[in-house]
Write a protein that binds this DNA or RNA. Structure first.
Lengths: 333, 333
DNA sequence: CTGAAAGCGCTTACAG
DNA sequence: CTGAAAGCGCTTACAG
């Protein structure tokens, strides 16, 4: 049985209002009375009911976060972890949910969050879905790296296009002539980056796109056959996990990286820095994005929605032919 | 402005109670009246305020989950992801928080969760802390894999001792004579497992424990020097991430795995199955633990606290000398 | 400095 | 079948 403010007030022999003032420190209370209230509260192990306070104040201080369903890639996790910490520093709590399989289920989830959550940050979204229905909910929405096209919501995006272009340009600079990209079909920014880099390539360069269902180790491993068939001497994978899955394929087939094929990934997973050879990758602007997301959540709801794009950062490592050991570069500082 | 039940009732020209009945489907309402209410609700985009309902019903259906601070190991993430899904299937929401650095901050966090959360599941805990203060909070607690010794709370544990013992026994069976363990000082179960396995070893076997500050790639890499110094021909790492960090060290020094040194880890990260050589590891009983945790959260609070231990599972792969390719074993089914 | 009242938005009894 | 009242636990005005 949790103690209530009423119980504390009765025990201290004061009105509920006076007890409230004494405990919260707002408003004047005679020192002796305050002491009596605090003692009563301590003895009853009184802890204020945050939900009741929220209801009265119409401010729950809870932010919903929708993440991808199969949460396992390290970058997504770091993002959630950083977001939770930043939100907590801002006095907010994080309600976590995975993106449901269907629009209907998402609607149900958001309705069940109504009144609990003030804002919802989407870290994952299905681009085939309609955002219309979101408008009728008394919730503020923010989309991070969802490649959403609807301008009615705040959106923070990593500039995947430039990030991928930088990585692919690096493959070209290393003198590679048959460049492949392995990834999923719905990654518009990555495709654009790949094409952008190839647009500036010399005439003798050939390229291909190998469609993958997933973004996991197994998907990278599975792409090995198609890469051999194409005769790729360089490959960009949409995720580091895929790239490292391909490492295993290459090892089994005796294909040398980067000798026979140069490899680059995306996400800057910690595993990549320790892989053999260390993996060239593109890092998300995590810190900037998180900082801005929290600002957005704290800002008054009336502000105009905007699209903010943050640059990704290329991390060049051994897998495209560098002789330096990036592990020492990065951790030696 | 979110529409309230009162607004819907007024628009439909009925009492608030009748509107409530029509919308929730509880209790009898004349068909024509119900239709009027539903229409009004639709037009106003009415969504019930879950927080207000919680307050009245004294049941928030929100479960707090406290995870480790630097959430990056894959196993911990899978656990959270599975937990969120299982809780949602049980009609519960997941409030996420990282374990604060100090007891005081944890107390503050839990107080701020009071009234919001019905139970809190700890996925991380500092064994130096006192559990006494938890008792005064109107929250139910559950500890998963925290190696907590206090019998007043429900605890679900992976049998790390047997898991580690199985891995180390496998190293011994492979004929290794100088066995090291690399890990943190506070891992009681792992230490016990290591010692248990060595207790049954032949007289000629030597062993050592190399203390590590963290459980990351860099920590495994950093242990390389001490392992060479000891002249280890086999090593058990407390996490797969450390083991894979050591892979990099071995590669740089030209040490062959498993030829010169056999390696085993713990956690069953996906990366291990694709590493070269594929990493022998111990898998957590994730599914069983999650299922039981949700059962506990749903069960009446009066039940006696208990300690339940689930067995870990050894996954033997190339890193201790097996010739089979476990990748094919595991994904070929 | 202190208290009685009203209300956040809903639901749970209780009368009609 | 329907409505007026009370209450979840707190806070925000408003009187004294």
């Amino acid at each position: 049985m949790a103690a209530t403010l009423k119980m504390v007030a009765e025990k201290a022999g004061v009105s509920i209002r006076t007890a409230g003032r004494a405990l919260s420190g707002t408003g004047p209370v005679k020192a002796e009375v305050a002491r009596r209230v605090l003692t009563a509260a301590r003895e009853l192990h009184y802890v204020p009911n945050a939900a009741a306070r929220s209801l009265k104040q119409r401010a729950s201080r809870i932010v919903g976060v929708i993440c991808e369903t199969n949460l396992q890639n390290e970058c997504g996790v770091r993002r959630i972890s950083l977001l939770e910490g930043a939100l907590r520093n801002a006095g907010r709590h994080t309600l976590l949910g995975a993106l449901p399989e269907t629009e209907e289920k998402l609607g149900k989830l958001l309705r069940s969050w109504t009144g609990i959550v003030e804002s919802v940050i989407f870290l994952a979204w299905n681009r085939a879905w309609n955002t219309e229905k979101l408008h009728s909910l008394p919730i503020r929405f923010l989309f991070i790296d969802c490649e959403l096209e609807c301008a009615k919501f705040d959106r923070l995006e990593t500039d995947r296009t430039s990030g991928v272009a930088a990585a692919v340009t690096e493959l070209l600079r290393a003198g590679r002539k048959r460049i492949a990209r392995v990834g999923t079909d719905n990654a518009a920014g990555r495709r654009a980056g790949f094409e952008k880099a190839l647009g500036g390539a010399s005439p003798g360069v050939a390229s291909t796109f190998i469609v993958s269902n997933g973004l996991e180790f197994a998907d990278g491993f599975a792409a090995g056959g198609a890469l051999e068939e194409f005769g790729a001497d360089a490959v960009f994978f949409d995720t580091d996990r895929m790239a490292l899955g391909f490492y295993r394929y290459a090892s089994e087939k005796g294909i040398s990286i980067p000798g026979e094929i140069a490899v680059a990934g995306f996400d800057d997973d910690a595993a990549g820095a320790f892989a053999i050879p260390a993996l060239t990758t593109v890092a998300h602007p995590l810190a900037e994005t998180i900082e801005r997301a929290v600002e957005k959540v704290l800002a008054p709801a009336e502000s105009e929605p905007e699209l903010i794009v943050y640059p990704a950062r290329l991390i060049r490592r051994e897998s495209i032919g560098s002789a330096t050991n990036p592990y020492q570069q990065e951790t030696g500082k």
